[in-house]
């Protein structure tokens, strides 16, 4: 039976989860060939591939829901349609993942904040009433567990490393902290999905996340006095309001599909 897709919560939630993973995966892929050392070039590229893989799973599910909801049954939406043929205001990713790579410290800290968030999120979504979302989350959780381990060890290594690495991670913190609050402020579709036990209210993850950040920061000798609370910049990528960076990402990422629709290689 056709449903109204724009208000169907598994659809919006899948799209949000896919957009988060795709945009950070794309950002990380910008390091491929430019990593500080070959082994870490491969490590960050592996994480990029994990994230793009998660994005594909969620896009495929969202596309399936869209096709099923079409009244005449003639829609032919694919994962590529959703990744390459939507504009910035349609993207529901949070602001954190679209921020520029900066130096290695900024990339690491962005990964740490986001992977830790994904970890607690997927842990809960494994129990989603929507069996597809539950299954994708369960699979992704294994990958994210490693991302958390890898990125937190790097945060410690940089924070408790040389004077320069310490300064760089502090600078990264200054750049990124303001994008953390958004992770825990639920968008409408998140709350509605939570009410239907399809999703969860992300504000419930905040204290666990914050606690773990403090724990890692203490080990990394990163001062935590200023982290009295999370900060927000007042608009939310989750709701389609993005920083200037997303447009540039999409311009590069979508160019080939826009110029040569449905091309394959």
């Amino acid at each position: 039976m056709p449903v109204n897709i724009s208000t169907y919560q598994p659809f919006n939630l899948s799209l949000h989860l896919a957009d988060n993973a795709l945009i950070l995966g794309h950002r990380n892929s910008e390091w491929t060939g430019h990593g500080p050392i070959l082994e870490q070039d491969i490590a960050i590229s592996n994480i990029a591939l994990d994230l793009v893989g998660q994005a594909r799973n969620f896009y495929q599910y969202a596309a399936k829901l869209m096709n099923e909801s079409s009244v005449d049954g003639k829609e032919n939406i694919t994962e590529d349609t959703l990744a390459y043929h939507r504009d910035a205001w349609d993207f529901k990713n949070c602001l954190l993942v679209e921020q520029t790579n900066g130096d290695w410290a900024k990339t690491i800290l962005r990964q740490f904040f986001f992977s830790l968030y994904q970890f607690y999120l997927y842990e809960q979504l494994q129990n989603s009433k929507d069996s597809t979302i539950a299954a994708i989350s369960e699979k992704a959780l294994k990958e994210v567990t490693y991302h958390v381990k890898w990125s937190s060890e790097w945060v410690i290594r940089l924070g408790d490393g040389t004077n320069e690495s310490h300064e760089r991670i502090l600078k990264a913190l200054d750049d990124l902290w303001k994008f953390t609050e958004e992770l825990f402020i639920p968008a409408d579709y998140e709350l509605e999905a939570a009410n239907k036990h399809v999703g969860i209210d992300p504000s419930l993850l905040k204290s666990k996340w914050f606690q773990k950040v403090i724990e890692i920061f203490e080990e990394a000798t990163i001062p935590i006095d200023n982290l009295s609370g999370l900060h927000s910049i007042g608009f939310y990528g989750k709701e389609g309001k993005h920083s200037e960076h997303l447009g540039y990402i999409l311009a590069e990422m979508q160019f080939v599909q826009r110029a040569y629709p449905n091309c394959e290689w």
């Binding site: 050392i37 070959l38 082994e39 870490q40 491969i42 490590a43 592996n46 490693y146 381990k149 890898w150 060890e153 290594r157």
Partner: peptide, 17 residues
């Protein structure tokens, strides 16, 4: 073989490479 700062990083790099 590979480069790494310590044993833990070496194991993780080995996993990734």
């Amino acid at each position: 073989s590979l480069h790494a700062a310590d044993a833990q990083m070496a194991i993780e790099n080995a996993r990734d490479v």
